[in-house]
């Protein structure tokens, strides 16, 4: 249903005569704080804090690195305890740990290695995410304030996972999608996010994926599926920084026979669902004539982005049709 725009685009593209590059003169506005923060069950709060840039600001590495906010004072509270987050900068991380840091933050390891990028995390081990708790976030970036509240819902595990061939080509017996059966709890207001990570090795002997990857459209809610047991499937998301061959050849978007896949199925709240849903629409509708331009619906006051509690349920499967 998300692709309802596709056919119209197809007609437009059949008729389209030409596309050319132009320069547009956009108004300038003050940059806003952008929060990308999560706290998952058993994990510490983690915040990446950046600022918006003008759309046509320089695209150099320096320009992109400059959006990461340094020296912000960030605290997270569960209503009883309030803890400060520590600024961790990539220049202080040994090269051997860069990949691990990248996997943890979702940032591009190359970016962490080539620029001094700072993020914020709680470094103790006495304040980790707990199901059913509410966490408030407060940010003071040199006097600029932003705040948000999120909850970690109760995790909902999948009933089962299996692999089925997509058979896009008649002779193809290796590429497919992962299917899952879910029983939605009988209260309204459940929402879910899907991540997957292939942990088997590629031809070079490296693990195929270093981090959990969510496809662009990765969330759904139970408005239409409340209390049902039903099947669904997801394609394979790819990391934004990937230049892996299998993200560019015919394997892109598919899991492959023999892959060992860890599925992280995350329960999230409705405001967080709305953010990820509108975020995906915002990203997907870039260049789409037929949709009304819309901002991602943030749950941050004083800024953009999301502060999300994740209740993850982890399952591992081997792709055998």
């Amino acid at each position: 249903m998300r692709s309802s725009i596709l056919p119209f685009l197809a007609v437009a593209s059949l008729l389209t005569a030409c596309t050319k590059d132009i320069t547009v003169d956009l108004p300038t506005t003050d940059p806003k704080l952008v929060v990308e923060g999560t706290i998952e069950i058993g994990g510490p709060p983690l915040v990446i804090l950046t600022r918006t840039q003008s759309y046509f600001d320089p695209t150099s590495l320096e320009s992109i690195a400059s959006i990461f906010v340094r020296d912000a004072v960030i605290t997270v509270s569960d209503g009883i305890t309030t803890v400060p987050l520590t600024q961790i900068c990539s220049s202080a991380i040994p090269d051997s740990l860069i990949d691990e840091a990248a996997a943890l933050t979702g940032l591009d390891p190359a970016l962490l290695a080539s620029a001094d990028i700072c993020i914020y995390a709680y470094t103790g081990n006495d304040f980790l995410g707990v199901e059913g708790r509410t966490y408030s976030l407060n940010i003071d970036a040199g006097g600029e304030l932003a705040s948000s509240v999120t909850s970690i819902p109760y995790a909902v595990a999948l009933d089962s996972l299996w692999f089925r061939l997509a058979q896009q080509q008649p002779d193809d017996d290796s590429l497919g999608f992962i299917y899952a059966t879910l029983t939605d709890p009988d209260t309204m207001g459940n929402a879910y996010r899907w991540f997957a990570k292939r942990i088997n090795q590629d031809y070079d002997g490296d693990q195929k994926d270093d981090q959990f990857i969510a496809p662009l459209f990765s969330v759904f809610e139970d408005r239409y599926i409340n209390a049902l047991t039903f099947d669904f499937n997801f394609n394979r998301g790819s990391s934004q920084y990937s230049s892996d061959e299998d993200d560019e050849n015919e394997e892109a978007g598919y899991f492959k026979r023999g892959d060992t896949v860890v599925v992280k199925f995350v329960s999230i709240g409705i405001p967080e669902f709305q953010f990820y849903n509108t975020y995906a629409n915002n990203v997907a509708s870039q260049g789409d004539l037929f949709s009304t331009p819309a901002n991602a619906r943030t749950n941050i006051s004083g800024g953009l982005g999301v502060w999300a509690g994740y209740a993850q349920a982890i399952d591992t499967m081997v792709c055998v049709p």
């Binding site: 108004p27 806003k32 918006t52 990203v283 009304t292």
Partner: peptide
């Protein structure tokens, strides 16, 4: 027309920020 004025990043994807509705004129 409405065009994005600012850009920001979430999970490595570029997100557009729209400020003014119909704030830009095409040729």
């Amino acid at each position: 027309v409405t065009l994005p004025v600012n850009r920001y990043w979430i999970e490595g994807r570029l997100v557009s920020e729209y400020t003014q509705r119909n704030g830009y004129r095409m040729a």
